[in-house]
Amino acid sequence: MAATNVEVWQQATVIETQSIATDIQRIVLEPSAPKKAEPGSHVDLKVMIDGEQDKRSYSVVESSEDGKRLAISVMKAPQSRGGSLFMHTLKPGDTLEITQPLQNFPLRVGAERYILLAGGIGITAMINMARVLKNLKADYTFVYAGRNRAAMAYLPELQELHGDNLVVHVDDEGTSLKVDELVASADLETELYMCGPIRLMDVVRRAWTERELNLPDLRYETFGNSGWYDPEEFIVRIPRLGVEAKVGQGRSMLETLEDAGVDMMFDCRKGECGLCEVRILELDGAVDHRDVFYSERQQHAAAKMCCCVSRAVTSKTGAKSDADPHRGPAVVTIEVS
């Protein structure tokens, strides 16, 4: 059945919770209007942060045939805006509002060869896909990269299920992923699906382009929640409107501007569509582009940014130590539509 992304909000009851890796909680939900989750799908759900409601997206790790058991897994992010902390407080019997499974990352059946690449918590988007490929007896390699084993959710289960098809890279064990080698193993008949930190995905995308593989065969999903730099507090100014606001570590520039009463245009809120684009008039610091809307050339020019995900940072080189601890926050002066 063709995927539909019309959101149907419903109640879900938490039926199981379990800590499965460092700071990662597995949560099994029973939705009131169950629907089987296809590989690559996610659910949106409403979380409470400081008494206010907000929306988060989580990949569906597992779904029963009837959709009555949907498993998600949530990493407690150190820079979290509070959504993951809320998710970690859930206990069996709690209820929350969720959508039916939504699909922005469909697996195409019928490719000659597949590479699935998961970085860290990005594993959640790939588990369901890998299981389907195994059932289809497809030619696939499942690559799972992480910092250390204790932080890698589902590792033993995946090793048991996928055997030699699973290739594990662990930074702490000196077996870090070499992206060039991985991409060199792809050919024109290969589709690569990936989910992970944006640094990893940027590197893969560059290698893919250099190898002159077809870009539409490189599939990825981003929830716009990781960047090249750690998030910092910064200042945004709109001189025409007389607005100056401080963007907190756990807020986006778009949210901050909305809070300040600026009438902002946006759609996807994850750095894909480009509708929330703002023009940069002046910049004290650097832009941490976290979108996939701009090309590298455009990001480098730093004339515009997607304010839903991208941030201003003080560092100029990407090295954290580069930032002068005594200087003030980065300041970005913009114009909006």
Partner: peptide, 9 residues
């Protein structure tokens, strides 16, 4: 635009 929205399918 210079890129392709990954959701566009």
């Amino acid at each position: 635009q210079e890129t392709i929205n990954p959701s566009a399918t």
